[in-house]
């Protein structure tokens, strides 16, 4: 009994870190960072792991970055004139078109979880940032039952099939400077999540 309580609490720390990574990715992919966030990112990273080294690379870019330049870069990557260099939507990656079946399936799952778009927001929910945001919420139990099984199901259905490819595209995107290591971070994290879910048995 005591053992499992301790185990759960320790498990909690790792889970909280996962929620933080999802939260960070959601934040950076939803909008460009402000000066405060750049300043924070500048101190991240460690050399021991590939993930830590990706954070070091991001820290280096963050130190060299200017808020306005990163905002321009964000615009070029995700907004553009007409469209950005990348279209960070599940439906686009899985079918080649926006608003297709993957979005319908996502909407059905979100309804069951009680997640909705903000009022007046008519854009699709399958944007990578909102999927990361939903994962952070699932990990923290902000909605759903907080179970690993629910997290795994959502991840396998809505992120695993395409998010790795998207992050790889981001790593290699022409316009990506600050965002290239964000791509590395995302790609590595998707791999980590996939492997970790497989271990949960």
């Amino acid at each position: 009994m005591v053992d499992s309580t301790v185990a759960e609490r320790l498990l909690g720390e790792e889970e909280e870190l996962r929620a933080q990574v999802y939260g960070l990715l959601a934040r950076l992919l939803a909008a460009p960072p402000d000066a405060a966030l750049l300043g924070f990112l500048a101190g991240l990273g460690e050399r021991e792991t590939e993930f830590g080294r990706a954070l070091l690379a991001l820290a280096e870019r963050a130190r060299a970055a200017e808020v306005e330049a990163v905002a321009d870069e964000y615009h070029e990557l995700f907004v553009g004139v007409g469209r950005g260099e990348l279209l960070p939507y599940a439906s686009y990656y899985l079918t080649g078109f926006l608003y297709e079946r993957p979005l319908a399936e996502l909407r059905s799952d979100l309804r069951q979880l009680g997640v909705a778009r903000a009022e007046g927001n008519k854009e699709p929910e399958d944007h990578i940032a909102s999927l990361c945001e939903v994962m952070a919420g699932l990990v923290r139990g902000a909605f759903g039952d907080g179970s690993l099984e629910l997290q795994r199901r959502f991840f396998m259905r809505h992120l695993e099939p395409w998010a790795g490819r998207f992050f790889q595209d981001l790593e290699r995107a022409q316009a990506a400077r600050f965002y290239a290591p964000v791509g590395s971070l995302g790609r590595l994290f998707v791999d980590i999540e996939r492997a970790a879910f497989a271990m949960a048995g």
Binding site: A30, A116, R117, A118, A129
Partner: peptide
């Protein structure tokens, strides 16, 4: 639950 303002 509402997707956040920044996502919006």
């Amino acid at each position: 639950y509402r997707l956040t303002e920044h996502v919006k």
